[in-house]
Design a protein around this nucleic acid. Sequence first.
RNA 1: GGGCCCGUAGCCUAGCCAGGAUAGGGCGCCGGCCUUCUAAGCCGGAGACCCGGGGUUCGAAUCCCCGCGGGCCCGCCA
Length: 733
Amino acid sequence: MRALIETIPRVIGLDEKVVEDLVAKRRLKLARTPDPKYGDYGVALHVVLHMVKAPRQEWDKLLSRIANEIMGSSRAKECFIYRIDYSNGYLNFYIDYRKLSRIIFKKIIDEALFDEIRSYGRGEKILVEHTSANPIHPLHIGSGRNAVIGNTFARILRRLGFSVREHFYVDDMGRQVAVMVYGYTKVKEKGIEPPPKIKPDHWIGAIYALTNIFVSIKNMHHEQEKIAGEIRTLIEHLKEEAFGKRGDGYLLAVTRIAESQLSLKHDPGAVLEMIVSALKKQEGKKPTGIRREAESLLLRYRDIRNKLAELYECAEDLRTVFPRLYDVLSQSIDEPEVFEEKVSELMKLYEEEDPRITRLFREAIDLVLRGFDSTLRRIGIVFDSYDWESDPEIKKLTREIIEASLRTRYGGSEGQAVIVDLGKAYEEDDYIRSIFGAEKPERVVLRRSDGTTLYVSRDIAYTIYKYRVTGAKKVYNVIATEQNLEQKQVRSVLYLLGYKDYADNTIHLAYEMVHLKGYRMRGRYGRYISMDELIERYRKLMLDQYMESHKKLGVEEAESILDKAEKLAVANTRYLLLSIEPLKVLTFDPGKLAEHTEGSWIQYTYARLLSILRKAYGEDIDRPDDVRREVTRDYDGIDIDAIGLTREEEEIIEKLMGYKDVLVTAYEEMKPNKVAEYAYELSSVLNLFYEKIPVIKERIENKKKFRLVLIYCAAKILGDAMYVMGIPVLPRI
RNA sequence: GGGCCCGUAGCCUAGCCAGGAUAGGGCGCCGGCCUUCUAAGCCGGAGACCCGGGGUUCGAAUCCCCGCGGGCCCGCCA
């Protein structure tokens, strides 16, 4: 690049500053060429050519002079350029990958590359909060996406030499947990204990869902009764009208039939429909008030019917799996008003730390957390800390920040309620404006009129807690995009409270939801695909794939194949949830699992590399490190100038050199999926190499050594990328 | 109503912020390759007016404006 800056102005007569400026603005930049026939890297010089109004016929002449000048300078050698081409205004460079390979191989063999990568973060303390699923049902693929993105991001940071802690925020003070505990109490009262062979989070999840379902069903029934009453009133009105100002015998007759039908076992919806269609006949196109009323009633009625149908379907699904829970809960759930009261009571008692209720909450939540932990361990995720929302420290901080907010410029109270006027702050404060952008905030309530706290206020306190307890310099919150606003509120209030530093360094790593093809995931009704189910499905798929190629499986092998299937399944699960850019909605079709096996494909590529190393150095090799000494020796013995590289080899070298940048970009852009993409591409070029280029059978010893070193280096990097993604490394498949 | 995000073949996705050569991959579909380092692989083929319309530019999937479609958020819920 420097050579260009020096050469171009001289050759085509531009000020050096102008060219330098273009480079700084990235108007002039070096990029890979679309095709090897144009060399390896190219730069488009159209901008400068147009600047000096060079006629097209002269382009080649000018470019050739630039090329010659650069080749003549010492720069070319330093950049491993052995040839420069030009065409259509592009200047194309040919790189001598043999020289490059020596450098990158050396760095990988003596581990200098990894030290270099590790030096990036300088041990700075970073806290990553992720997963933080409500402890009311098992982790589903939505919370799983959070876990995988969060954990991978943390692993990337660790690789880059940051000192990272992963925290899980146990949201135990919310209403949903109280609902779960309510149901749990009902089940417990009947003497039912968690069955030992059922995963506890799945069991609690069923309780939570059934509780919600039965309450909702009761609510819907009340609503239906209300509508039935309204239909009767409507008929009355209609009758009066038919008698009175309309004097309409037909309408009168219809109302009589309607009344009669309602007294029978007859669907009120059908009756409504009859009335609406009768009214339509009478009026033609223009609806009257009464018809509009009937129509809106009909819509409401249909809406409720659909919802009820869905609820019953969800209930039935659960009934087939948990018949006992279904029976108990279907009978013991209170009427909605009583239910609401009891749930509020539970919340209040838990916030007040009533010992009996606290024990009950902890007991139920622990069951779920135990389930979380086993799922998460399965996919290689272990938290450094579980922070409870109900932690006395956080509660105390919550009270303090509420008091402190009253003393800020925009804080105020209405009775016991405490409110921060972010709308006003937005008008007057640049910093607040910079947080919200075009989205003008409104007020945020930190304490209710009844004196209880809210999620946001506790979250603000928790954020301060994170910095204080861990000494973190930066905090990443891996949270769904639906919480965008809340995260901005948290930062704003922190700033207004004087914690500008915290506000600056609290970063929302936002990701989009996971949708299911065909239906909506509903945690509260038990409609979700859990992570455990996803992994199990993959495990079966992997087993099937094995059987397809091997046909037979001996009893003594079954155990080890199962173990492999598990690791392959974990790889596919993690890859699936990681590979899609966080800000894109992931629509998941459980029927198409077999199409998403990139994770295990990468593992396979890795196993092939090790297989080559085994053939070369000995059958007992399980990791590249086992042959480090031999590879070092081979590396020293290569006569690099005697080798002509194949395109495949060049591509691999190119990729290996890009590893560090990928990690850094993934960190800076908060796109851990970049690592997945990289591992996939590296695997892809490695598979091409594997198919086309012999290693063990290579006759020329020099070439063979070179390729073995290449394989070793590729295995090191691919293995490292896999580790970063939490994909288990299998030496043999 | 306001705001944020997304829109690339039948489906999924890279490239977009920092504009450059024929828009990369994958799944699925069609056709090939197992006496040669693991065929969970590879090769070939068909399949894209880069949501639409304007603009800026020598050059636009990429930048700007106006639309359209989808998701999410706007609670004294969490």
